[in-house]
Design a protein around this nucleic acid. Structure first.
Length: 879
DNA sequence: AACCTCACG
DNA sequence: ACGTACGTGAGGTTG
């Protein structure tokens, strides 16, 4: 069998992988995307080529000949970003752990080592494949040496392959001549100067004609065009030097032998442990069973009533337990862990002796007796438990983990185990698929048992590390006093739901359809063709190519057809306002009219979900459906609020904070002017206008007030001149002037914002008034944009987050007050700075008092909190 | 699944 | 020179 040698251009592939994959870190904060990408590419080629030998070449860090020589020639070679730099030693170690030989030599580039090795390999009778992201290596192609260049585009990875003939076909020169082409045209990225004025076209033409640089010079009189001739004459020395630089050395010292490069067992213990630390789960799967030392819990199944009683009785005497509850249809399971790896699994599948009520009662009892009962997502189980805001033993693992790092997308047991116990467990997603469901035929599957076992075990194991971390970050009060009670308020809102008049909603939708069809016809007529107006792609082509409208702006994939673009040309073409209206109406129809209708339950109410572990700032999020983005700004959309109705005998009371974020800013910054303005209950936007424009309050025009309002908003968002200029449609210079003047008038605000950015940089996170943290990894990024973003986040998060804390407190207190007093009125919705109460008519005044009281006193700030309350027979009227 | 667009605070 | 306002969720199209 023929021997095959696979050579990998380490730096080049690592580089490709780094830029090809989104930023990624393991739980230690080590960047890992380049290493993962590299390994994936390597495995892909190993599988495709099935080589007998393998080696990877790297540049050594020391500056090499080429770069030293031209370090000043064309600026400096771009240093690699830190996020990539830290991954270089990692991939080397991983490869070494896999027994893959590395070729590295001071004074030689990876290119030179690859070139030399490929020549040696070919001479020794190998078929040679070189994998690189770099076209420079094409000069190494022969009939036996193939250069393979993987390219990532959308769709996946495509590989360009080059034997000698392929180079000739694509570039019209042989691999050796390719060097001369490069000597003429130069290569900025490689600091090869080339000959000025000669680009790829001319270079190729000259080399096709003269074969080499030297020969072209020898026949300088025949060189055309004139510019090339003159420059070649003048810069010939530079050309010779460029050729030298462009030539890959084929006589470099090679430290490894073919014997060493022989492909052996990649899947070593060391490699396994390294990959585990890198948290490359998918790659770990390649390792054989022996290496898969997956941690397993010992599950003991209990179906006997007496035994169950006994276990729960004994458990109740202990301090801590971890529990997992799973329900599907009529069956229900409970996993319980109190120590070690032993997990009891109680099931009431079908006709067991254990019942659902029994198990919930037992769990409830544990909450009364034990110090800590740990579970994930406790809110999902509250309907069956009697625990309440006062229950001290509730330990919600998901909530605790969210507070410690609110940036994660999931808080499942495997995430918790990895982050707080350094354990790599198979995830729910890995254990469950279509072939392996959680439950089949009413019986909990092996995968299901495993998952529940892990959940109970991890929940208990996580109590200490999570508590310690919360204490260390001084977030225990936030957890106990705000988040746990908030969980109950959210659960109450989910259970209550909000009444929607489905008939009125249907009528609203029907009324839209008529107008949508009219608009569609007019648009087709205007465009002179029929197309899918909902497709931005088709719409862009119709508007800016077929109809040749001006004002086209491109996005990555085509033309932008966003409102900002269309509004600019709204008055020039009749089709544009039609499209804008069409967009508006179809949005209302699909997302709201039809969308909401799908969620109306048998009780004629929509029971949306309120999520507590989603946002980075501590806000609540709303899904299935989203009840926090029901239209209000435009009248037509706002009308949909007429279908949200209180029950008979009730009215809506809607209370919202007035400018809570600006008030928070006044408090946090301690700016006396701002504080004073709020103490005096002044019109804050007019006041800002007066300060910024240097005019008396009563001379502020409406335009000036509007602009000042935008500045105030901008401050909260982490102001940029660009953003403000966009919003106000003024020049960036003008916007910058507003900002400068604002900060001159409110110096403490400036100090505060700068201070937050500083804190973010030193601590890695910023905090709210109630110690909620928001980590900002972007502040450490080497990417300008990312860092900028991080700075804005550092300015915004303490403000938005503190406001979120305050309304959570108010929400909890209002909800508890209504429950304590056993009132009929109930809290239905929270929309960031607003609470909606379905208020019994007999309780109207009392509820209003409660709202005022609890909302205004939720936090004590340097400025008063102020609220607006409205009432109505529908949400529309109450706003 | 990614992108665009747009609804809200 | 870079290309941006902060925080969300959903529907439609397209690959």
């Amino acid at each position: 069998m023929e021997q095959k040698l696979l050579l990998i251009d380490g730096n080049s592939i690592l580089n490709r992988a780094f830029y090809g994959l989104p930023d990624m870190t393991n739980s230690q904060g080590l960047h890992t995307n380049a290493v993962l990408g590299f390994l994936n590419i390597m495995f892909k080629f190993l599988e495709e080529e099935n080589p007998t030998h393998l080696a990877v070449a790297f540049d050594l860090k020391a500056p090499t000949f080429r770069h030293k020589m031209f370090a000043d020639y064309k600026g400096t070679r771009k240093g690699m970003p830190d996020e990539l730099r830290e991954q270089v030693p990692v991939i080397r170690e991983v490869l070494q752990a896999m027994n893959i030989p590395l070729m590295m030599k001071e004074g030689y580039e990876a290119d030179d080592l690859l070139g030399t090795m490929s020549v040696l390999g070919e001479e020794a009778g190998f078929e040679v494949k070189i994998v690189s992201g770099d076209r420079d290596l094409l000069q190494l192609a022969t009939k036996k040496v193939q250069i393979r260049i993987p390219k990532t585009n959308r769709a996946g990875t495509v590989v360009e392959d080059y034997y000698e003939d392929d180079v000739l076909e694509k570039y019209q020169v042989t691999p050796k001549e390719f060097i001369d082409v490069k000597a003429l045209m130069g290569d900025a990225s490689d600091n090869i100067p080339g000959i000025p004025g000669i680009g790829e076209k001319t270079a190729t033409k000259l080399i096709k004609e003269f074969k080499t640089l030297e020969n072209a010079y020898a026949h300088i009189d025949e060189v055309k065009p004139n510019r090339a001739k003159n420059n070649l004459q003048e810069y010939y020395d530079q050309g010779v030097m460029s050729k030298e630089l462009a030539t890959i050395k084929l006589d470099s010292p090679i430290d490894i032998t073919f014997e060493e490069a022989k492909l052996g067992n990649l899947y070593t213990k060391e490699a396994y442990h390294m990959l585990k630390e890198l948290e490359f789960k998918a790659i770990l799967k390649r390792f054989d069973g022996e290496e898969q030392e997956d941690f397993e819990v010992k599950i003991k199944e209990i179906v006997d009533l007496a035994e169950a009683e006994d276990i729960f009785a004994k458990t109740a005497k202990k301090k801590e337990a971890g529990i997992s509850i799973y329900k599907e249809n009529d069956a229900m399971w409970v996993a319980l862990n109190t120590e070690g790896e032993e997990v009891y699994l109680f099931s009431c599948e079908g006709f067991g002796f254990l019942t659902e009520d029994f198990l919930y009662e037992k769990v409830d009892h544990l909450y009364q007796k034990m110090e800590h009962v740990a579970m994930m997502e406790v809110k999902e189980h509250l309907s069956h438990l009697t625990i309440n805001e006062m229950t001290k033993s509730i330990f919600d693992v998901s909530l605790a983990a969210y507070l410690i790092n609110p940036l994660k997308s999931t808080y499942e047991y495997d995430d918790i185990a990895r982050d707080y116990k350094s354990m790599m467990l198979p995830s729910r997603k890995e254990l469950i698929d279509k072939k392996h469901p959680m439950v089949s035929d009413g019986v909990l599957s092996d995968a299901g048992k495993k998952i529940m076992g892990y959940e109970a075990y991890v929940a208990r194991e996580a109590i200490k590390p999570l508590s310690n971390k919360l204490t260390e970050l001084e977030m225990m009060d936030l957890y106990r006093e705000i988040e746990i009670p908030t969980m109950f308020a959210l659960h109450d809102m989910e259970v209550r739901g909000i009444h929607v008049d489905s008939k009125a909603l249907k009528e609203y939708g029907d009324q839209l359809v008529g107008r949508i069809e009219e608009l569609q016809d007019s648009i087709y007529k205007e465009a002179g063709e029929e197309f899918n107006i909902n497709s931005p792609k088709q719409l862009g082509v119709v508007l800016f190519e077929h109809m040749k409208l001006e004002g086209a702006k491109k996005t990555k994939t085509g033309y932008s057809t966003s409102v900002e673009v269309l509004e600019k040309i709204e008055h020039l073409y009749p089709i544009i306002p039609m499209i804008l209206e069409y967009r508006q109406l179809t949005k209302l129809k699909s997302t709201y009219a039809d969308g909401l209708a799908n969620f109306i339950q048998d009780d004629q109410r929509i029971h949306g979900k309120f999520n507590q572990t989603i946002t980075a700032t501590g806000r609540i999020s709303s899904t299935e459906p989203n009840l926090q983005n029901i239209p209000i700004r435009m009248e037509l959309g706002r009308a949909i609020r007429k279908v949200f109705l209180p029950e008979d005998g009730y009215v809506f009371l809607d209370a919202d904070y007035s400018q809570i974020e600006l008030r928070v800013l006044a408090h946090l910054s301690e700016d006396e002017k701002l504080i004073h303005a709020y103490e005096e209950n002044q019109d804050i936007h007019a006041r800002t206008a007066s300060e910024v424009f240097g005019i008396p309050m009563d001379e502020v025009t409406s335009t000036q007030r509007r602009e000042a309002k935008a500045v105030n908003f901008g401050i909260i968002y982490g102001l940029s001149a660009f953003g403000l200029s966009q919003d106000l449609k003024i020049s960036r210079k003008q916007a910058q002037e507003y900002i400068d003047r604002y900060f001159a008038m409110y110096p403490r605000v400036k100090e505060f914002l700068d201070g937050e950015v500083e804190k973010g940089k030193t601590d890695g996170y910023v905090k709210t008034m109630f110690n909620r943290i928001r980590p900002i990894p972007e502040l450490k990024s080497s990417n300008f944009m990312q860092r900028n973003f991080g700075e804005r986040v550092a300015m915004n998060s303490p403000i938005q987050g503190t406001a979120a804390d305050i309304i959570k407190i108010a929400m909890v207190r209002v909800n508890m007050k209504l429950k304590e007093k056993q009132m009929k009125s109930r809290l239905l919705l929270q929309i960031h700075d607003e609470l909606l109460i379905e208020t019994h008519v007999d309780e109207f005044d009392e509820v209003k008092e409660i709202l005022k009281n609890e909302m205004m006193n939720a936090a004590s700030l340097r400025v008063p909190l102020s609220i607006d309350i409205e009432q109505g027979a529908s949400w529309y009227e109450a706003k």
